[in-house]
């Protein structure tokens, strides 16, 4: 996206934001609450129209694309959605195939294969016939991730995919996201854990008040200085085991 500005009710959320994600790359966005992280993902997915600037997918202006065309390129795992509790897990994940089906045609063998594959990847095959209302929060999130994978898109957007999850499943989802990037997808994830971002992302963008405050490899971006400036917290950064750990020392005075 280039120089994108956006606001709600006259309140600017995004100011001249420029952000690029490449195929095969895992880009993590971190930033304090209300800095516009989720809004950035929704702009890429065409759910909001920029007030100025352009969002492009494969060189095409998203504003000129219909919902179905966008959905063939971009899959977004939203923060929350109200899934009808009576729906089965298989039915939920099959929803991801909607855009690949004809107006009247039924699910094809290819659809079933994509659904089965997504269920294997997220380890939810055993839940296939369970009702969504019976699932734990973690199970539901893995099923929603499977639905997003079943959509089979070149661009994968994940909005806080690990929130409220048990630690094990947080890493499951991050590893899946990285595997998608390695397989050629452009993955953009909003994360709130610096360590996870440093461990899994190829590049980290720190957002602050609707702008990119810093962008680059985790080691250059997730510094004590940037964290203090953006989050208002003094930390001690420790590099270990290939990740960056920030140990908080207190609020910036």
């Amino acid at each position: 996206m280039d120089n994108v500005s956006f606001g709600f009710d006259g309140r600017a959320v995004m100011r001249d934001l420029t952000l690029r994600a490449k195929p095969g790359e895992f880009l993590a966005i971190v930033g304090p609450n209300g800095c516009g992280k989720s809004t950035a993902l929704k702009l890429i997915a065409g759910l909001h129209r920029p007030a100025s600037g352009v969002v492009r997918i494969d060189g095409q202006d998203v504003a000129a694309m219909g919902r179905a065309r966008i959905a063939r390129h971009v899959a977004l795992l939203t923060q929350a959605s109200a899934v009808p509790p009576n729906m089965t897990v298989h039915e939920l994940i099959a929803m991801g195939r909607f855009v690949h089906q004809g107006f009247l045609s039924r699910r094809s063998a290819r659809d079933e294969e994509a659904i089965a594959h997504a269920m294997r990847v997220m380890d939810v095959t055993g839940l296939s016939h369970r009702r969504v209302g019976e699932l734990s929060g973690g199970q539901l999130q893995r099923c929603r991730m499977a639905m997003t994978l079943a959509q089979d898109c070149g661009i994968l957007l994940l909005d806080e995919p690990t929130t409220y999850l048990d630690l094990r499943y947080q890493f499951d989802i991050l590893e899946t996201a990285r595997a998608q990037a390695r397989a050629g997808a452009a993955v953009v994830a909003v994360l709130h854990d610096f360590t996870q971002a440093s461990l899994y992302a190829d590049r980290v963008a720190v957002m602050h008040e609707g702008r990119i405050a810093a962008s680059g490899p985790a080691s250059e971006v997730l510094t004590e200085d940037v964290i203090a400036r953006v989050f208002g917290v003094r930390t001690r950064a420790v590099h270990a085991h290939g990740g960056i750990f920030h140990i908080p020392e207190g609020a910036v005075r």
Partner: peptide, 8 residues
Amino acid sequence: EQAAVLGV
């Protein structure tokens, strides 16, 4: 929102 993301 979810329906739009899925292509509706």
